[in-house]
Design a binder for these strands. Structure first.
Lengths: 154, 154
DNA sequence: AGGAAAAAGGACTTGCAGGTCCGATTTACG
DNA sequence: CGTAAATCGGACCTGCAAGTCCTTTTTCCT
């Protein structure tokens, strides 16, 4: 139902949010989130284009979350890599109804709307703050922090 | 978000429900629902395996809905061709948490649950009965009925 | 029996998501 | 300036969903 790319992007961003405002290399992200390293690099590029993360080349560089975790919703992340496409017109291509959807596609679009709403309702901060013994990403120990340089988040 | 196959299957089944208890050939279904004929044939096979439709070879044969439209939900159709796979275990493969999902995947699964619920809540009959000028499948006129033979639905 | 109409099913093609590899480019630091 | 560390970006590979085509099988009708 959700693509691998979406799954990977969410893991990556949640991880960055957990480490924020520290920067992490794609290699570090890949290892912790169990995402193929080179593929993650492409996904990160997309996240950067969408303004969700900032990247920094060269020695000491890496990837850092561009905003406050409380200001980023799951929907933001999903839409950055693979926008949820609501059904706005009859897929059969008949223009007989103009804007109105037929009952079937109305229901399908309602389902999409429900997903959108569920994702819009949760921020990264909320994911991290979950009052449970279960830590985000199903992972326990975190690697030691790297210092973040002035030119990133801070 | 939803695959083409799911979209096609829903169109096909809604069409059959509208024509029920008459039988239709895959060629007729394909034309009305604007689904590639040969591909629809494969999808129908899947629906038949799931018991949603009955097929009849030979002259005068075709496809007929196997149940009452009020007894078939959208979820039934979706699950017949491409089951919604809920997230029941941590996709990272860490067994540290056993059954409990991390906050992220909990949210994702919640979204899936919402879709499931939305689809479970609507039957084909309800789709057809929508009190609107907008007929199902965004289509207006229907082809003339074929008689259905005793050995199918009746 | 024979022909026509229908689904069944196998082989094949195509486009794209997911994934890999590697060189080019940018940057920090001694 | 040189080197190492990091992203960038292009080329490529692979498996699967989507779609096409054709033959076989079943069935009805005359």
């Amino acid at each position: 139902m959700f693509s691998q790319t979406v799954e990977y992007a969410l893991r990556a961003v949640v991880y960055l949010a957990a480490e924020a405002p520290a920067a992490r290399t794609t290699a570090q992200m890949a290892e912790t989130t169990k995402v193929p390293k080179d593929y993650l690099a492409k996904i990160v590029q997309g996240l950067a284009r969408a303004g969700l993360v900032r990247t920094q080349r060269g020695v000491g560089g890496g990837v850092v979350l561009a905003k406050d975790p409380a200001a980023v919703t799951i929907l933001d992340v999903v839409n950055a890599v693979e926008p949820i496409r609501r059904i706005t017109a009859c897929p059969l291509g008949l223009k007989a109804h103009g804007v109105r959807l037929c009952p079937l596609h109305k229901r399908m679009d309602n389902a999409l709307a429900a997903v959108e709403e569920a994702f819009r309702a949760t921020t990264l901060a909320e994911v991290l703050a979950e009052p449970t013994d279960s830590v985000p990403l199903c992972d326990g120990p975190r690697p030691e922090r790297l210092t973040v340089r002035g030119k990133g988040a801070g």
